[in-house]
Design a protein around this nucleic acid. Structure first.
Lengths: 189, 189
DNA sequence: GTCTATAGCGCGATAGAC
DNA sequence: GTCTATCGCGCTATAGAC
Protein backbone atom coordinates (compact mmCIF):
# COMPACT_ATOMS: atom_id res chain seq x y z
CA UNK A 1 0.00 0.00 0.00
CA UNK A 2 1.04 3.59 -0.58
CA UNK A 3 1.29 4.53 3.09
CA UNK A 4 3.81 1.80 3.83
CA UNK A 5 6.86 3.91 3.05
CA UNK A 6 5.50 6.86 5.01
CA UNK A 7 4.84 4.55 7.93
CA UNK A 8 8.41 3.34 7.75
CA UNK A 9 9.62 6.94 7.82
CA UNK A 10 7.60 7.54 10.97
CA UNK A 11 9.00 4.42 12.60
CA UNK A 12 12.57 5.31 11.68
CA UNK A 13 12.21 8.90 12.91
CA UNK A 14 10.61 7.69 16.12
CA UNK A 15 13.41 5.19 16.71
CA UNK A 16 15.98 7.99 16.53
CA UNK A 17 14.11 10.04 19.10
CA UNK A 18 13.38 7.01 21.32
CA UNK A 19 17.10 6.27 21.42
CA UNK A 20 17.89 9.83 22.50
CA UNK A 21 15.30 10.25 25.21
CA UNK A 22 13.32 7.02 25.63
CA UNK A 23 9.77 6.17 24.55
CA UNK A 24 8.00 7.91 27.44
CA UNK A 25 9.82 11.22 27.03
CA UNK A 26 9.11 11.52 23.30
CA UNK A 27 5.76 13.01 22.27
CA UNK A 28 3.77 12.61 19.07
CA UNK A 29 4.40 16.32 18.55
CA UNK A 30 8.17 15.68 18.74
CA UNK A 31 7.94 12.94 16.14
CA UNK A 32 5.80 15.08 13.85
CA UNK A 33 8.11 18.07 14.18
CA UNK A 34 11.13 15.94 13.26
CA UNK A 35 9.26 14.94 10.09
CA UNK A 36 8.11 18.47 9.29
CA UNK A 37 4.39 17.74 9.69
CA UNK A 38 1.75 18.14 12.41
CA UNK A 39 1.04 15.51 15.04
CA UNK A 40 -2.50 14.84 13.79
CA UNK A 41 -1.12 13.84 10.40
CA UNK A 42 0.77 10.92 11.90
CA UNK A 43 -2.52 9.17 12.56
CA UNK A 44 -3.16 8.71 8.85
CA UNK A 45 -0.30 6.21 8.87
CA UNK A 46 -0.22 4.67 12.32
CA UNK A 47 -2.95 3.85 14.82
CA UNK A 48 -1.16 4.95 17.98
CA UNK A 49 2.17 5.77 19.58
CA UNK A 50 2.11 2.28 21.04
CA UNK A 51 1.99 0.76 17.55
CA UNK A 52 5.24 2.53 16.65
CA UNK A 53 7.04 1.07 19.66
CA UNK A 54 5.59 -2.35 19.01
CA UNK A 55 6.73 -2.37 15.38
CA UNK A 56 10.26 -1.34 16.33
CA UNK A 57 10.70 -3.90 19.08
CA UNK A 58 8.86 -6.95 17.77
CA UNK A 59 10.49 -6.94 14.34
CA UNK A 60 13.94 -6.85 15.97
CA UNK A 61 13.08 -9.52 18.52
CA UNK A 62 11.84 -11.80 15.74
CA UNK A 63 15.01 -11.18 13.75
CA UNK A 64 17.14 -12.33 16.70
CA UNK A 65 14.93 -15.35 17.26
CA UNK A 66 15.26 -16.46 13.64
CA UNK A 67 19.00 -15.83 13.69
CA UNK A 68 19.76 -17.91 16.75
CA UNK A 69 17.49 -20.74 15.58
CA UNK A 70 19.62 -21.09 12.45
CA UNK A 71 22.84 -21.00 14.47
CA UNK A 72 21.85 -23.56 17.09
CA UNK A 73 21.03 -26.12 14.42
CA UNK A 74 24.44 -25.95 12.77
CA UNK A 75 26.68 -28.99 13.04
CA UNK A 76 29.57 -27.00 14.42
CA UNK A 77 31.51 -26.42 17.64
CA UNK A 78 30.07 -24.20 20.35
CA UNK A 79 32.93 -21.75 19.80
CA UNK A 80 31.91 -21.41 16.18
CA UNK A 81 28.28 -20.91 17.16
CA UNK A 82 29.18 -18.21 19.66
CA UNK A 83 31.21 -16.43 16.99
CA UNK A 84 28.14 -16.59 14.77
CA UNK A 85 25.99 -15.09 17.55
CA UNK A 86 28.47 -12.23 17.92
CA UNK A 87 28.25 -11.67 14.18
CA UNK A 88 24.44 -11.77 14.33
CA UNK A 89 24.38 -9.04 16.98
CA UNK A 90 26.90 -6.86 15.16
CA UNK A 91 25.00 -7.22 11.90
CA UNK A 92 21.54 -6.47 13.29
CA UNK A 93 22.85 -3.60 15.42
CA UNK A 94 24.56 -1.96 12.45
CA UNK A 95 21.32 -2.16 10.46
CA UNK A 96 19.09 -0.99 13.31
CA UNK A 97 21.21 1.23 15.50
CA UNK A 98 18.29 3.26 16.81
CA UNK A 99 15.73 0.48 17.19
CA UNK A 100 18.15 -1.49 19.35
CA UNK A 101 17.86 1.18 22.04
CA UNK A 102 14.10 0.64 22.25
CA UNK A 103 14.54 -3.13 22.27
CA UNK A 104 16.88 -2.82 25.24
CA UNK A 105 15.32 -0.02 27.23
CA UNK A 106 11.66 0.42 26.35
CA UNK A 107 10.27 -3.12 26.06
CA UNK A 108 8.47 -2.67 29.39
CA UNK A 109 6.26 -0.04 27.78
CA UNK A 110 4.82 -2.54 25.34
CA UNK A 111 1.15 -3.07 25.99
CA UNK A 112 -0.54 -5.63 23.73
CA UNK A 113 2.60 -7.49 22.74
CA UNK A 114 4.52 -7.53 26.00
CA UNK A 115 3.89 -11.23 26.64
CA UNK A 116 4.91 -12.14 23.12
CA UNK A 117 8.12 -10.13 23.47
CA UNK A 118 8.93 -11.77 26.81
CA UNK A 119 8.43 -15.20 25.25
CA UNK A 120 10.81 -14.38 22.42
CA UNK A 121 13.42 -13.02 24.79
CA UNK A 122 13.19 -15.98 27.15
CA UNK A 123 13.50 -18.37 24.21
CA UNK A 124 16.57 -16.52 22.96
CA UNK A 125 18.31 -16.74 26.31
CA UNK A 126 17.41 -20.42 26.66
CA UNK A 127 18.91 -21.32 23.28
CA UNK A 128 22.04 -19.27 24.04
CA UNK A 129 22.38 -21.06 27.39
CA UNK A 130 22.07 -24.43 25.65
CA UNK A 131 24.93 -23.56 23.32
CA UNK A 132 27.13 -22.62 26.28
CA UNK A 133 26.20 -25.71 28.29
CA UNK A 134 26.86 -27.90 25.26
CA UNK A 135 30.27 -26.28 24.91
CA UNK A 136 31.13 -27.03 28.53
CA UNK A 137 30.00 -30.63 28.36
CA UNK A 138 31.93 -31.17 25.12
CA UNK A 139 35.05 -29.72 26.73
CA UNK A 140 35.21 -26.82 24.27
CA UNK A 141 34.61 -24.19 26.96
CA UNK A 142 36.15 -23.90 30.43
CA UNK A 143 34.30 -25.54 33.27
CA UNK A 144 32.79 -22.58 35.04
CA UNK A 145 29.57 -20.88 35.93
CA UNK A 146 27.61 -20.92 32.67
CA UNK A 147 25.21 -18.27 33.99
CA UNK A 148 28.09 -15.86 34.45
CA UNK A 149 29.31 -16.60 30.94
CA UNK A 150 25.85 -16.05 29.47
CA UNK A 151 25.45 -12.83 31.42
CA UNK A 152 28.81 -11.48 30.34
CA UNK A 153 28.35 -12.32 26.66
CA UNK A 154 24.78 -11.05 26.46
CA UNK A 155 25.52 -7.83 28.33
CA UNK A 156 28.25 -6.92 25.90
CA UNK A 157 26.25 -7.88 22.82
CA UNK A 158 23.17 -6.00 24.01
CA UNK A 159 25.23 -2.85 24.55
CA UNK A 160 26.63 -2.79 21.02
CA UNK A 161 24.09 -0.17 19.97
CA UNK A 162 25.78 2.33 22.28
CA UNK A 163 29.27 1.78 20.97
CA UNK A 164 29.03 0.84 17.33
CA UNK A 165 27.84 4.26 16.15
CA UNK A 166 31.02 5.82 17.57
CA UNK A 167 33.21 3.78 15.25
CA UNK A 168 33.84 5.38 11.90
CA UNK A 169 34.66 3.39 8.80
CA UNK A 170 34.05 0.16 10.66
CA UNK A 171 35.00 -3.10 9.00
CA UNK A 172 32.18 -5.38 10.14
CA UNK A 173 34.02 -8.68 9.89
CA UNK A 174 37.16 -7.29 11.49
CA UNK A 175 35.29 -5.78 14.43
CA UNK A 176 33.20 -8.90 14.79
CA UNK A 177 36.25 -11.13 15.10
CA UNK A 178 38.07 -8.72 17.44
CA UNK A 179 35.05 -8.75 19.71
CA UNK A 180 34.72 -12.54 19.50
CA UNK A 181 38.36 -12.85 20.48
CA UNK A 182 37.96 -10.67 23.57
CA UNK A 183 34.76 -12.45 24.61
CA UNK A 184 36.06 -15.96 24.01
CA UNK A 185 39.77 -15.71 24.85
CA UNK A 186 39.70 -12.86 27.33
CA UNK A 187 42.30 -10.15 27.69
CA UNK A 188 44.91 -11.96 29.75
CA UNK A 189 48.32 -12.48 28.16
CA UNK B 1 17.67 17.95 59.79
CA UNK B 2 14.49 16.04 60.54
CA UNK B 3 13.34 15.71 56.94
CA UNK B 4 16.54 14.00 55.85
CA UNK B 5 15.37 10.48 56.52
CA UNK B 6 12.01 11.12 54.88
CA UNK B 7 13.85 12.52 51.89
CA UNK B 8 15.92 9.36 51.72
CA UNK B 9 12.72 7.28 51.79
CA UNK B 10 11.40 9.26 48.85
CA UNK B 11 14.62 8.77 46.92
CA UNK B 12 14.71 5.05 47.62
CA UNK B 13 11.06 4.58 46.66
CA UNK B 14 11.57 6.62 43.51
CA UNK B 15 14.61 4.57 42.54
CA UNK B 16 12.56 1.36 42.71
CA UNK B 17 9.89 2.82 40.43
CA UNK B 18 12.45 4.42 38.09
CA UNK B 19 14.09 1.02 37.64
CA UNK B 20 10.75 -0.58 36.73
CA UNK B 21 9.48 1.99 34.26
CA UNK B 22 12.07 4.73 33.79
CA UNK B 23 12.11 8.30 35.09
CA UNK B 24 9.77 9.78 32.49
CA UNK B 25 7.06 7.15 32.95
CA UNK B 26 6.91 7.53 36.75
CA UNK B 27 4.73 10.32 38.12
CA UNK B 28 4.86 12.15 41.43
CA UNK B 29 1.48 10.54 42.16
CA UNK B 30 3.05 7.09 41.63
CA UNK B 31 5.85 7.87 44.07
CA UNK B 32 3.45 9.29 46.64
CA UNK B 33 1.09 6.33 46.34
CA UNK B 34 3.97 3.90 46.88
CA UNK B 35 4.73 5.77 50.10
CA UNK B 36 1.10 5.97 51.24
CA UNK B 37 0.86 9.77 51.05
CA UNK B 38 -0.40 12.36 48.56
CA UNK B 39 1.76 13.85 45.81
CA UNK B 40 1.64 17.36 47.25
CA UNK B 41 3.20 16.11 50.48
CA UNK B 42 6.37 15.08 48.67
CA UNK B 43 7.20 18.74 48.14
CA UNK B 44 7.80 19.26 51.85
CA UNK B 45 10.91 17.12 51.48
CA UNK B 46 12.14 17.61 47.93
CA UNK B 47 12.07 20.60 45.60
CA UNK B 48 11.19 18.81 42.39
CA UNK B 49 11.07 15.46 40.60
CA UNK B 50 14.31 16.49 38.93
CA UNK B 51 16.04 16.77 42.31
CA UNK B 52 15.19 13.14 43.06
CA UNK B 53 16.79 11.94 39.84
CA UNK B 54 19.81 14.15 40.36
CA UNK B 55 20.39 12.84 43.89
CA UNK B 56 20.19 9.22 42.74
CA UNK B 57 22.54 9.60 39.80
CA UNK B 58 25.16 12.05 41.05
CA UNK B 59 25.82 10.24 44.33
CA UNK B 60 26.44 7.00 42.44
CA UNK B 61 28.60 8.65 39.80
CA UNK B 62 30.73 10.23 42.52
CA UNK B 63 31.07 6.90 44.27
CA UNK B 64 32.45 5.31 41.10
CA UNK B 65 34.81 8.23 40.54
CA UNK B 66 36.25 7.96 44.03
CA UNK B 67 36.54 4.19 43.72
CA UNK B 68 38.50 4.16 40.49
CA UNK B 69 40.77 6.98 41.66
CA UNK B 70 41.88 4.80 44.57
CA UNK B 71 42.41 1.80 42.30
CA UNK B 72 44.43 3.55 39.61
CA UNK B 73 46.93 4.82 42.18
CA UNK B 74 47.72 1.36 43.55
CA UNK B 75 51.17 -0.02 42.88
CA UNK B 76 49.83 -3.24 41.40
CA UNK B 77 49.47 -5.05 38.06
CA UNK B 78 46.76 -4.03 35.64
CA UNK B 79 45.14 -7.45 36.10
CA UNK B 80 44.86 -6.78 39.82
CA UNK B 81 43.42 -3.32 39.17
CA UNK B 82 40.82 -4.71 36.78
CA UNK B 83 39.81 -7.28 39.39
CA UNK B 84 39.42 -4.42 41.83
CA UNK B 85 37.21 -2.53 39.35
CA UNK B 86 35.01 -5.61 38.97
CA UNK B 87 34.73 -5.77 42.73
CA UNK B 88 33.89 -2.06 42.89
CA UNK B 89 31.02 -2.50 40.45
CA UNK B 90 29.66 -5.60 42.20
CA UNK B 91 29.83 -3.88 45.56
CA UNK B 92 28.15 -0.63 44.51
CA UNK B 93 25.52 -2.46 42.47
CA UNK B 94 24.60 -4.71 45.40
CA UNK B 95 24.18 -1.67 47.63
CA UNK B 96 22.27 0.39 45.06
CA UNK B 97 20.45 -2.08 42.85
CA UNK B 98 17.67 0.33 41.92
CA UNK B 99 19.68 3.50 41.56
CA UNK B 100 22.01 1.80 39.09
CA UNK B 101 19.14 1.58 36.61
CA UNK B 102 18.73 5.36 36.67
CA UNK B 103 22.47 5.88 36.36
CA UNK B 104 22.51 3.73 33.24
CA UNK B 105 19.24 4.66 31.58
CA UNK B 106 18.01 8.04 32.78
CA UNK B 107 21.10 10.24 32.95
CA UNK B 108 19.96 12.07 29.80
CA UNK B 109 17.01 13.46 31.75
CA UNK B 110 19.29 15.32 34.13
CA UNK B 111 18.86 19.04 33.73
CA UNK B 112 21.11 21.18 35.95
CA UNK B 113 23.74 18.52 36.59
CA UNK B 114 23.97 16.90 33.17
CA UNK B 115 27.34 18.46 32.35
CA UNK B 116 28.78 17.49 35.70
CA UNK B 117 27.58 13.91 35.23
CA UNK B 118 29.09 13.74 31.75
CA UNK B 119 32.41 14.97 33.11
CA UNK B 120 32.44 12.30 35.79
CA UNK B 121 31.56 9.57 33.30
CA UNK B 122 34.17 10.68 30.79
CA UNK B 123 36.80 10.78 33.52
CA UNK B 124 35.86 7.29 34.65
CA UNK B 125 36.22 5.89 31.16
CA UNK B 126 39.54 7.69 30.65
CA UNK B 127 41.03 6.24 33.82
CA UNK B 128 39.75 2.76 32.96
CA UNK B 129 41.30 3.08 29.48
CA UNK B 130 44.62 4.10 31.03
CA UNK B 131 44.66 0.97 33.15
CA UNK B 132 44.04 -1.19 30.09
CA UNK B 133 46.64 0.61 27.97
CA UNK B 134 49.18 0.31 30.77
CA UNK B 135 48.44 -3.42 30.93
CA UNK B 136 49.07 -3.82 27.23
CA UNK B 137 52.30 -1.84 27.25
CA UNK B 138 53.56 -3.78 30.29
CA UNK B 139 52.78 -7.06 28.52
CA UNK B 140 50.22 -8.09 31.13
CA UNK B 141 47.33 -7.99 28.68
CA UNK B 142 47.13 -9.33 25.13
CA UNK B 143 48.04 -6.96 22.35
CA UNK B 144 44.66 -6.13 20.90
CA UNK B 145 42.17 -3.38 20.40
CA UNK B 146 41.98 -1.66 23.80
CA UNK B 147 38.72 0.09 22.87
CA UNK B 148 37.06 -3.28 22.30
CA UNK B 149 38.36 -4.50 25.66
CA UNK B 150 37.11 -1.40 27.45
CA UNK B 151 33.74 -1.68 25.75
CA UNK B 152 33.34 -5.33 26.63
CA UNK B 153 34.35 -4.92 30.27
CA UNK B 154 32.26 -1.79 30.87
CA UNK B 155 29.17 -3.20 29.15
CA UNK B 156 29.17 -6.21 31.40
CA UNK B 157 29.86 -4.23 34.56
CA UNK B 158 27.20 -1.65 33.75
CA UNK B 159 24.61 -4.39 33.25
CA UNK B 160 25.18 -5.98 36.65
CA UNK B 161 22.13 -4.25 38.08
CA UNK B 162 19.93 -6.34 35.79
CA UNK B 163 21.42 -9.68 36.78
CA UNK B 164 22.57 -9.44 40.35
CA UNK B 165 19.06 -9.21 41.82
CA UNK B 166 18.22 -12.57 40.24
CA UNK B 167 20.92 -14.33 42.21
CA UNK B 168 19.81 -15.55 45.60
CA UNK B 169 22.20 -16.09 48.48
CA UNK B 170 25.01 -14.54 46.49
CA UNK B 171 28.54 -14.75 47.85
CA UNK B 172 29.96 -11.39 46.82
CA UNK B 173 33.60 -12.38 46.71
CA UNK B 174 32.88 -15.65 44.93
CA UNK B 175 30.73 -14.02 42.27
CA UNK B 176 33.21 -11.21 41.88
CA UNK B 177 36.08 -13.59 41.18
CA UNK B 178 33.99 -15.80 38.85
CA UNK B 179 33.11 -12.72 36.84
CA UNK B 180 36.70 -11.48 36.84
CA UNK B 181 37.80 -14.84 35.54
CA UNK B 182 35.34 -14.80 32.65
CA UNK B 183 36.20 -11.21 31.76
CA UNK B 184 39.95 -11.62 32.03
CA UNK B 185 40.56 -15.21 30.90
CA UNK B 186 37.57 -15.69 28.62
CA UNK B 187 35.56 -18.86 28.23
CA UNK B 188 37.78 -20.81 25.86
CA UNK B 189 39.24 -24.08 27.09
C1' DG C 1 3.94 17.04 57.72
C1' DT C 2 -0.06 15.90 55.30
C1' DC C 3 -4.15 17.27 53.37
C1' DT C 4 -7.71 19.35 49.55
C1' DA C 5 -8.07 22.12 45.73
C1' DT C 6 -6.42 23.82 41.73
C1' DA C 7 -3.40 26.51 38.48
C1' DG C 8 -1.19 26.08 34.11
C1' DC C 9 0.32 23.30 30.82
C1' DG C 10 1.14 19.37 27.61
C1' DC C 11 -0.33 14.83 26.48
C1' DG C 12 -2.53 11.18 22.91
C1' DA C 13 -5.99 11.08 19.94
C1' DT C 14 -10.22 12.53 17.01
C1' DA C 15 -13.31 15.38 13.79
C1' DG C 16 -13.81 17.41 9.79
C1' DA C 17 -12.20 21.03 6.20
C1' DC C 18 -9.34 21.24 2.17
C1' DG D 1 -2.27 13.33 3.18
C1' DT D 2 -2.00 17.34 5.85
C1' DC D 3 -4.15 20.86 8.16
C1' DT D 4 -6.69 23.56 12.33
C1' DA D 5 -9.23 23.07 16.28
C1' DT D 6 -10.27 20.75 20.17
C1' DC D 7 -11.62 17.04 23.66
C1' DG D 8 -10.66 14.82 27.92
C1' DC D 9 -7.25 13.76 30.73
C1' DG D 10 -2.95 13.62 33.54
C1' DC D 11 1.16 16.02 34.53
C1' DT D 12 4.37 18.98 37.97
C1' DA D 13 4.00 22.11 41.22
C1' DT D 14 1.82 25.68 44.46
C1' DA D 15 -1.46 27.79 48.04
C1' DG D 16 -3.28 27.55 52.16
C1' DA D 17 -6.15 24.91 55.84
C1' DC D 18 -5.39 21.79 59.64
Amino acid sequence: MKTETRKQQIIQTSAILFKERGYSAVTMRDIAKAMGIKAASLYNHIASKQEILSDIIISLAEEFTEGIQCIVNLDESSIFKIKQIVHLHVQITLNNQFGMASLNNDWMHLEGKLDYYLTLRKNYETVFRQIIDMGISRNELVKGNSEVMLFSLLSTLRSLYIWLPKKEELDVDEFSSELSSVLINGINK
